[in-house]
Design a protein around this nucleic acid. Sequence first.
DNA 1: AATAAAATCACGGATTCCGGGGATATCCCC
DNA 2: GGGGATATCCCCGGAATCCGTGATTTTATT
Lengths: 207, 207
Amino acid sequence: MIKVMVIDDHPIVLEGLKNLLSSRDDMMLAGCFGTGKAGLKAIKELEPNVVLLDINLPDISGADICRQLRRQDKETRIITLSIHNERPVIRNILQAGANGYVLKNSVGEEIITAIHTTLDGRPYLCRKTQEIMSQVGEGDLVEIPQVTRREKEIMELVSKGMTTGQVAAQLFISTHTVESHRKNLIEKFDAASMTAVIKLATRYGLI
Amino acid sequence: MIKVMVIDDHPIVLEGLKNLLSSRDDMMLAGCFGTGKAGLKAIKELEPNVVLLDINLPDISGADICRQLRRQDKETRIITLSIHNERPVIRNILQAGANGYVLKNSVGEEIITAIHTTLDGRPYLCRKTQEIMSQVGEGDLVEIPQVTRREKEIMELVSKGMTTGQVAAQLFISTHTVESHRKNLIEKFDAASMTAVIKLATRYGLI
DNA sequence: AATAAAATCACGGATTCCGGGGATATCCCC
DNA sequence: GGGGATATCCCCGGAATCCGTGATTTTATT
């Protein structure tokens, strides 16, 4: 019996996956969680064979969750779910230690296949994802930078249109500090300006 | 026999819809097009009963296509397809004259239901969309501004991180002109800065 | 305990952005 | 033909941003 855990903050997706799993008699649902924190804790306790993980959770990024699990040298297979079909996003999560990537508009069958394939020790990408990854070209060298909690916070406020001064006031820190973070972000994203950073971050689902 | 036309620039989606329609004997495919321009022309000639329209086409925005069709007082039902599940996007396209809105991660059944419902003269929103639209709150008063071709161009270049001067050089226009466009965009989006504009535009699928 | 990473603060100068004006030419639709 | 939308161009001043360079403190991780 395969123990499957689901971590996703969308109730509808959760519901759908529940139904999918309960229709199979070789799998069982080992828990449903809506946040990364709760999910991580539960994985340690319940030790599921497979985790279906939404990579856009409110608290922790999917990549971070993967890294934390891999650091503990877990055998748990991680199949990531996402609506994002951009190369850098996919590669980023795979590099972080995910075993599979399935777009949310895939059919249930693909998820079942993904579970079996990853348990066999092979990675699994859904149809559409395979297509995307097999195309050579443009966005090839783009890496998704690792942003810190604070930097993410800064990006979110800046993307709302707040100026450096306003962000500083909101976070009770100096404008100089905010400027430092902005500079670091521009450098990390290898962007020409904060505007470009915001576009990339939005597109990659970081904010 | 219901004549259904599909306008979508994603071959995979096109393929899926083709299969879906060919499996029904009360519907027929009245043409497949990958651009708004080709689609609009074809609608005038073929006069389909229903158009399945991706709202993010490379050349013309989905909302513009709806408006153009509605201006001609066509009876054609328009069912829009999209991956975007944001309130403003949905409301915008419905206001432009669409009869239905179906998220791309919906099942084929929903599309069939959408076709029948809209032909009965009623609007149709897919399950998820209904949920989103029935939630009251936050993004309620947000309208998606109507941007011109030129403004869109400016947004795209700015979002790449180009400065006003660089954009002007690229487009062979004066920096003053670029500044005017930026100002107009900020005003149209009711944003505090260009950064916020880019975020909104990215999120709404405008760029 | 030691090293690394993240977060904090600081200065100065060149450049850019934003908001407030105004002006002209073109195209499309009624 | 007139009105409206679009695209183009111009000016100015105050504010904010970007970039280089540097440093301190807090917080993990080993």
